Simulated assay, not measured.
Amino acid sequence: MNLRDTLLGLIIVVVWGFNFVVIAWGLEGMPPLLLGGLRFLLVAVLGCWFVARPDVPLRWLLAYGLTLGFAQFALLFTAMHLGMPAGLASLVLQAQAFFTLLLASFWLKEEIRSYQLLAIMIAGSGLVMIGWGDVWFSSTEIIAEDVQQSMTAIGFGLTIAAAIAWAFGNVVNREIHQRGFNKTKNGAISLVVWSAWIPPLPFFALSLYLEGPLIENALLNIGFSSIFALVYLALIATILGYSLWGYLLSSYPVSQVAPLTLGVPVVGLSCAALLLDEQLSSMQWLGILLVLAGLGVNMRGPHVMRWLSGLSKASAVK
């Protein structure tokens, strides 16, 4: 990448990493399902003026909007509302890369390579450490007093479910392209914007059913943090972030662009520690390193396998 596009890539990483702190701020003054519905409504209302409707049949637009839009963010916002720390959410959500591999192998009949299986095992062990880090340290009674054990089991589980929903959305996206739809220059952002008309209806319906008594108070007493969160999530994280992402994907090989997502949880964890005072146990930090290692193996798999092959040959010679 040239210098300008490298800087654009760094902007995406910072925008998407900081996004999780913004969600936490938004949830302080607004219930999760209402926040999700308003976020996508704002994306649709503003974005449809600037990009044309994608050449995608309605059934596939519905599938994309209900998986990557509604299901992913309904689960993620609820997870964070129920105790999933913002920093850990930014990392655990990246498990979507591995769920995408598994779903693509069943749905699209894509081959899973040996290095991808290795990556899944490494990252999977890291997720286990993150999920059980609090339990292990509590049982051994070596928790430092300043470490906040705020992650809940239901928050962790819902975040994993959000990653699975994202994976379903990725597979739907691949299916859309494989069928020859949405091949225009601005196809990526147009799909995001126009599919945003779909999530508000189930979001608002569920919000009315589950959050009914909270809605009026949240809207009448909406504060700066909630307004800022909505504007950031809609304009910055979604429209700007996906526009830049689509530009990079159209300008460079996917293998060169995709590794940028490794920086998202780094920014997410750093921002959460600085702005939300989130603390993690040593076991969870080890799990984080394993997840990042797994993501790295998935992105740079052929190089890793050649390196391992070289090591085995060198040891055999000795």
Rank of each mutant, 00 (worst) to 15 (best):
V264A: 09
V264L: 15
V264N: 14
V264H: 12
V264C: 11
P265V: 13
P265Q: 11
P265W: 10
P265K: 07
P265L: 10
V266D: 13
V266K: 05
V266E: 12
V266W: 07
V267R: 02
V267Y: 05
G268D: 09
G268A: 07
G268R: 12
G268N: 10
L269S: 06
L269D: 05
L269E: 02
L269Y: 00
L269I: 13
S270F: 10
S270Q: 07
S270G: 12
S270C: 14
C271Y: 06
C271A: 15
A272W: 00
A272Q: 00
A273G: 13
A273S: 05
A273P: 08
A273H: 07
A273I: 03
L274Y: 06
L274S: 02
L274F: 12
L274N: 02
L274A: 14
L274P: 04
L275A: 02
L275S: 03
L275Y: 13
L275F: 13
L275P: 02
L276H: 10
L276K: 11
D277P: 05
D277L: 03
E278S: 07
E278T: 10
Q279L: 06
Q279K: 10
Q279E: 12
Q279A: 11
Q279I: 03
L280G: 01
L280Q: 12
L280I: 11
L280E: 05
S281P: 04
S282E: 14
S282Q: 05
S282C: 03
S282F: 11
S282R: 07
M283H: 04
M283L: 14
M283Y: 13
Q284G: 09
W285A: 01
L286A: 15
L286V: 11
L286F: 09
G287T: 07
G287F: 02
I288L: 10
I288E: 04
I288P: 02
L289A: 12
L290W: 07
L290G: 03
L290C: 14
L290P: 12
V291P: 10
V291A: 09
V291F: 10
V291Y: 14
V291T: 08
G294C: 04
L295P: 03
L295N: 03
L295S: 01
L295M: 08
G296D: 06
G296W: 12
G296V: 02
G296M: 11
G296I: 04
G296P: 05
